[in-house]
Amino acid sequence: MLVFGEPYEATNGTGIVTVSNKSWGHRPEHPVGIYTINAENTMWTPAVDTSRHTLIGVCTGFAAAVIGTIAVLRRPPWPEMTERVMTALAQARISENRPR
Rank of each mutant, 00 (worst) to 15 (best):
Y8V: 15
P79S: 07
R27H: 12
V3W: 00
I34G: 00
A63G: 10
R27C: 10
P46Y: 04
D49Y: 09
P76Q: 04
I70D: 00
A90M: 06
A64I: 05
A39W: 15
P77N: 04
L73G: 07
A92I: 02
A71K: 09
V72Y: 12
T87P: 00
N38V: 06
I16P: 00
A63F: 09
A65F: 14
F4Q: 10
C59L: 15
E29I: 00
E83H: 13
A71F: 07
Q91P: 02
F4L: 14
R74N: 14
A88P: 00
R52E: 06
I67S: 12
S95L: 12
R84S: 12
V32S: 03
A71H: 03
P76G: 05
V3I: 07
N21F: 12
N21E: 09
Y35T: 03
A64E: 01
L89R: 11
T87S: 08
M1L: 15
N97D: 14
A63L: 15
A90H: 02
R52P: 00
W78P: 03
T45S: 14
L55I: 08
R27P: 02
H53D: 11
T11L: 13
V32H: 03
V32Q: 08
L89A: 08
N12F: 00
V72T: 12
H53K: 15
V3Y: 04
E6A: 11
P46F: 11
M86Y: 01
T11C: 02
I67F: 13
T82V: 06
A39Y: 11
W78Q: 08
E40Y: 12
I94N: 07
L55N: 13
R52D: 11
H53F: 08
R27L: 13
H30K: 06
G61Q: 13
A71D: 08
P77W: 03
T82Q: 05
N41Y: 04
P76H: 06
G33M: 09
M81F: 05
Q91F: 10
L2G: 01
S20V: 06
T36P: 01
S95G: 02
P28A: 05
M86K: 09
S23G: 11
V85T: 13
P77A: 01
T60W: 13
I34V: 11
V72K: 15
T82E: 09
V48K: 08
I16F: 07
C59A: 15
I67Y: 04
V85I: 09
I56D: 15
G13D: 03
Q91V: 02
T60G: 12
P31G: 04
M43G: 04
G33V: 04
Y35F: 15
V3G: 01
T45Y: 03
A64C: 10
W78I: 05
E80H: 03
S95D: 11
T82H: 12
T11Y: 10
P46I: 08
A63P: 01
V66S: 08
E6L: 06
R93C: 05
Y8I: 11
G15P: 00
W44A: 00
R84L: 06
